[in-house]
Design a protein around this nucleic acid. Sequence first.
DNA 1: TTGACGCATTCCGATATGGGAATATGATGG
DNA 2: CCATCATATTCCCATATCGGAATGCGTCAA
Lengths: 116, 116
Amino acid sequence: MAVMARAATTSDAFNAIAEPQRRDILALLRAGERPVTDVARELGMSQPGASKHLRVLREVGLVRVRGAGKQRLYGLDARGLRPVHEWVGGFERFWNESFDRLDTYVQDLKQTRQEE
Amino acid sequence: MAVMARAATTSDAFNAIAEPQRRDILALLRAGERPVTDVARELGMSQPGASKHLRVLREVGLVRVRGAGKQRLYGLDARGLRPVHEWVGGFERFWNESFDRLDTYVQDLKQTRQEE
DNA sequence: TTGACGCATTCCGATATGGGAATATGATGG
DNA sequence: CCATCATATTCCCATATCGGAATGCGTCAA
């Protein structure tokens, strides 16, 4: 069994959106379907670059292709982002608490020091 | 300037949570602070493994440490997850639409074929 | 001071990644 | 069938990543 260096980028949505350019692509596709060339041009990347990122996004199911003659139109399929949203949402009540909890730590520490 | 192969794992929360084990750690820490050894044991990973992942989480600010004598207690700091939640949330209306839009595609295709 | 314990770091190997450049594939119009 | 345009793939490089094993380091108790 080979040693796995890291979960493949193509394995899930979490990995797919870890790459900034892919996030940009997804954001762009909210405005509607786009052929590869447009994606590349609008985001300032090379054609092979766009093509590769779109491949990853397609493999994790965040994007769909449909042939339109000579072109291939890529469209958003955001369903795969829902689990991500839910997972992160599981921390919602913590990012409000955090400040207070940290303040408490700090106060405890200060007090402890003064008492010594 | 060196060629960057991939955004460093330590660069942001998106990358940090791309790794399943780190997600597990964050989830575990919702239950409260833990020393490294506990994290490792409860999640079935090696001590150095846990230590390394915690380092990454600390570097992106998702986790805080505080020394408690011989131990170092790691605690959740979920504030960094908020931007992630918001970014993904920007697609919320799309993952409800998606089904319909895709169905439309399919129907269009079928109809086109029948007409030919 | 010296163990012993808890944790961090370093070194290593196998592998994955993103980008650039070049090239292959595919569909279309003529 | 051919030329062309749109896209995909391949190759190569520099680098990053994760895991395991070994080792370093800091703190505490006796």
